[in-house]
Design a protein around this nucleic acid. Structure first.
Length: 429
DNA sequence: TTCAAACTAAACATAC
DNA sequence: TGTATGTTTAGTTTGA
């Protein structure tokens, strides 16, 4: 067994525990997690006009769930807020992300990030709207997030390229012919390996305990609290409520927590491991869960177990397509060898077009004057407005997640109705 | 001590 | 021609 993937050994001892604690408390302070307060509320007697059924039909909970999701969403990317991806969207969480990493102890400028190059690349690519980046933009992202590399020997760029070439997780996308800025290719994350990357990322020192707070366990507890409140406001007896909870929420969410096979994808394409083949274990799980189609974005939904996230997110049909999936047809690298150079993904033009026709840099591709690659979440720096596409995608994701929650809630609602009816009959007897 | 993962350096080829 | 990019090989470091 090798070291923990993606963690540079020299940084393990530097995990800022205090920041973790701060981060955890920050999460609980975040915006609206009304459930915490709700759960503490004394059991409410049923208000006539607000039966559980009625509540199911009003959309207030959607708003609450939206807030919850907003908080659970990890920036636009859904990765652990402790990862650099988290602060992509803003600098409102100074305790997290690179800011956290760079922060009080001022370690980051002189210390290596606690992420392997694979994870850095992964995060950089995931950060991009189209989930594809040229190597130059990957450099920029890493530089923006980790100033350490600004002063580090240039060998790290070589390492990045080395990783891109050798790591199966990354797929090269040939640009369309005849376009400007045609130097180099775009690099994407192989959706097949995203769960593994996510798991590797989850193992990073900064991914805990915050990510735990965003895990399906945490989501489960939050949802459960919410449902407890609902049940408390109904006239269902406690025993029935418990049964309902156990049979609906718990089952629904805990199913999402089956762990990934430990074998990760961060094995090398060639010299990094001859025994490597496509992650059959992951495929097996996918095959066992027909709905668990690869959903790159959904991988992040709960920032925890990636397969779990996939499963959860797979139910959120609206969020089931990432921009990558929409634009590219993935061809496993093992099928390479085509002399036509059409390896990896097959672009359907949108990506290149968007890349090159995006002078504002909304796509994240537009070269930025140096220093240039504008760090969206860098403290003290202006945050560019998200593009319509970004907003649209985020809305889609949010909608998908809400649909998922709606499904749970609807299911619970019907269960409540059934239980109430039975309870009523029982009383009549 | 062994092994595998990750890192680093370097050489080389290719495209712009 | 110089630079950026991509591939490959080899060696080193590190932790389990």
């Amino acid at each position: 067994m090798g070291p923990v993937i993606g963690m540079t050994p020299d940084k393990r001892a530097e995990t800022p525990g205090a920041e973790k604690v701060a981060g955890l408390s920050q999460i609980y302070k975040m915006g609206s997690l009304p459930e915490a307060g709700d759960a503490a509320r004394p059991k409410a007697t049923l208000v006539g006009s607000e039966s559980a059924d009625d509540e199911l039909t009003n959309l207030n909970w959607l708003h609450e769930s939206s807030n919850l999701l907003t908080n659970l969403r990890l920036g636009s990317e859904g990765l652990p807020m402790v990862s650099p991806l988290y602060d992509i969207e803003g600098d409102e969480m100074p305790s997290f992300g690179p800011a956290c990493y760079q922060n009080p102890e001022k370690k980051s400028a002189t210390s290596k990030p606690p992420y392997s190059f694979s994870l850095l690349i992964y995060m950089a690519i995931e950060h991009s709207p189209n989930k594809c980046l040229p190597v130059k933009e990957i450099y920029s992202w890493i530089l923006d997030r980790f100033p350490y590399f600004a002063t580090a020997p240039t060998g790290w760029k070589n390492s990045v390229r080395h990783n891109l070439s050798l790591n199966k997780c990354f797929q090269k996308v040939e640009r369309s012919h005849g376009k400007v800025n045609g130097k180099g290719s775009l690099w994407c994350v192989d959706p097949e390996y995203k769960p593994n990357l996510m798991q590797a990322l989850k193992k990073q020192p900064f991914s805990s305990p915050q990510s735990a707070a965003l895990s399906p366990h945490y989501l489960s507890s939050v949802l459960k609290q919410r449902q407890v409140q609902t049940l408390q406001e109904s006239d269902i007896d406690a025993a029935t409520a418990m049964i309902l909870l156990n049979t609906s929420i718990e089952q629904e969410i805990l199913e999402c927590e089956k762990p990934l096979p430990l074998k990760t994808s961060l094995q090398k394409k060639r010299s990094y491991g001859s025994a490597f083949s496509a992650p059959s274990a992951v495929r097996l799980q996918e095959s066992q869960s027909p709905t668990a189609s690869v959903d790159p974005k959904a991988d992040h939904n709960y920032s925890a177990n990636s397969v779990a996230a996939q499963r959860c997110a797979s139910r959120a049909s609206m969020s089931s397509l990432s921009s990558v999936d929409e634009v590219y047809e993935f061809i496993p690298k093992s099928s390479h060898g085509g002399s036509d150079g059409s390896e990896g993904f097959h672009s359907e033009e949108e990506t290149d077009a968007e890349y090159e026709e995006d002078p504002l840099g909304d796509s994240g591709y537009a070269p930025q004057p140096h220093g240039d690659s504008t760090p969206k979440g860098q403290p003290g720096q202006k945050i560019p407005k998200p593009s319509c596409q970004e907003i649209d995608e985020e809305l889609k994701e949010a909608a998908g997640s809400l649909l998922h929650l709606a499904g749970i809630r609807t299911c619970l609602g019907s269960l409540i109705s059934t239980a109430k009816a039975q309870s009523q009959k029982h009383r009549e007897k």
